[in-house]
Amino acid sequence: MLALVLQELQKSKEPLSVAALSKKLNIDQSALEGMLDHWVRKKRLIENNAQGEMPANCAACSGHARSCHCSAQCPFIARMPKTYSIAAGERGTDND
């Protein structure tokens, strides 16, 4: 079951949200969250869009700032779901 989560993310070209994984694997979100946390603790997965205090998953600022310096000018703080991807080294090659 845990391996399935890892395999699904390895197959995926892009990070997946809990909802997307839940749908793909037919595992309830509440159970899946624990599994994802397990892999994050093991450093096999990365939790994206979650750093910083600011914009909880703001599409504009995720991934580049611990705080969003441009939020004041941004009329669309597009909130994105938390996503997970395979940690560097797990996939083998960069997907870029």
């Binding site: 070209k13 892009e14 990070p15 869009n49 599409a59 504009a60 600022c61 995720s62 991934g63 580049h64 969003c68 441009c70 939020s71 000018q73 941004c74 009329p75 669309f76 597009a78 994105m80 997907n95 870029d96």
Partner: peptide, 24 residues
């Protein structure tokens, strides 16, 4: 389209928002 939507407000955060795309 998300960075584009952000671009209606200001181009600067919109350009940074392209980071949400995985492919270079």
């Amino acid at each position: 389209f998300l960075p584009m939507l952000v671009g209606f407000g200001c181009t600067v955060p919109a350009i940074y928002a392209t980071r949400t795309l995985e492919n270079k």
